[in-house]
């Protein structure tokens, strides 16, 4: 690990000012992704601002009938929250499908959204990676790409976003609330929060330097049957090859988002009009324009079948 200085802060505004005021500074919360990357010298922050003491660790009802989830709420606590289990089952299910019990006890809501890709070429510092070292190229293209993106990718990057939680947040139309060093706050819809790679895969979200996530807000519950179906190489504790978050209403209408296929949770609202027609019709519109590699082309039929299984599960 490269050397760094460290400080603790006690308020969101102080945290944002501390990171904005120091070049190379980063927030640390759970640390489960950042410390891993620091040990590999993929991340080399000069200064760490520990935000674990700023509060923002509760789940509260909003006046609109939804839930405001503090940025520091741990993944295990969010998954086990009684209201989330009852009204936002897809979110509990997605969280419980990710990582291990120990990591879920550490990882935070905001940190989960900000976790980096597990592309093997991002992790191997001997390889070219535009995300790790902008302009160096992409060794994943033409390389071992079985786990990587099939849609929304670019000639600069074919990495996927690894989060399960974010896929559920996308299907729930969550919004991300932030604060900046000057005290300005804003609300970013989850649909816009993560960016596609295009020519700047190292810029993964809309956040500005020093901008701190304070909470993630869910709208009022939409009812329906909630399903999160994850396909992976082993039964537990692995990243998704493909995952499907679905909310299905009694008439067969609903919403669907897919994980493991793109640089962000993948949802095409227009495709949801075809949900009563079944998985094939929805998948055709969800994956129009897909650019799989020979190694990961299997993800397209796999996603369609996983969606079919999710819709069957919702009906049963």
């Amino acid at each position: 690990m490269k050397s760094f200085t460290y400080e603790r802060v006690t308020s969101p505004a102080q945290a944002a000012a501390a990171v904005a005021g120091k070049p190379g500074a980063k927030f640390v919360a759970g640390g489960t992704n950042l410390l891993d990357l620091m040990k590999l010298q993929i991340e080399t922050p000069a200064h760490l601002v520990d935000v674990n003491g700023i509060g923002l660790d509760t789940v509260e009802a909003t006046s609109q009938g939804g839930l405001r989830i503090g940025a520091l709420v741990r993944n295990s606590d969010l998954a086990a929250h009684p209201t989330v289990r009852r009204d936002y089952g897809v979110l509990s299910r997605a969280l419980l499908a990710g990582a291990s019990g120990q990591l879920r006890n550490m990882a935070t809501t905001a940190g989960n959204l900000l976790q980096r890709t597990r592309c093997p070429y991002f992790y191997d510092t001997n390889m070219a990676c535009n995300k790790r070292q902008p302009g160096s190229g992409c060794s994943a293209i033409g390389g071992y790409s079985r786990q990587l993106a099939v849609i929304g990718s670019s000639d600069a990057c074919i990495a996927t976003h690894p989060s399960d939680m974010a896929v559920a947040m996308r299907v729930l139309d969550a919004t991300v609330e932030t604060v900046r060093a000057n005290g300005a706050t804003r609300v970013i819809p989850i649909a816009d929060f993560h960016r596609l790679p295009e020519n700047t895969p190292h810029i993964e979200t809309q956040l500005q330097p020093g901008e701190l996530i304070t909470s993630v807000t869910l709208p009022a519950p939409v009812g329906g049957t909630h399903v999160y179906r994850k396909v992976r190489d082993r039964a537990s504790y692995a990243f998704a090859l493909v995952s499907v978050a679905a909310i299905v209403q009694p008439g067969g209408s609903g919403r669907v988002a897919v994980g493991g296929v793109a640089h962000k949770p993948w949802r095409v609202e227009a495709a949801e009009a075809d949900m009563p027609q079944g998985a094939k019709a929805v998948a055709a519109r969800l994956f129009a324009g897909a650019r799989p590699t020979p190694e990961n082309a299997f993800k397209l039929p796999l996603a369609e079948r996983t969606l079919a299984a999710a819709l069957n599960q919702a009906r049963s």
């Binding site: 040990k39 760490l48 291990s100 120990q102 550490m106």
Partner: peptide
């Protein structure tokens, strides 16, 4: 790197991997 669980301890009564916490 938080993958094997050999370093698991209880912090404030909750299990965590001690290798990924400063």
């Amino acid at each position: 790197h938080g993958q094997c669980g050999a370093c698991t301890v209880l912090v404030n009564g909750r299990r965590v991997v001690s290798c990924l916490s400063l």
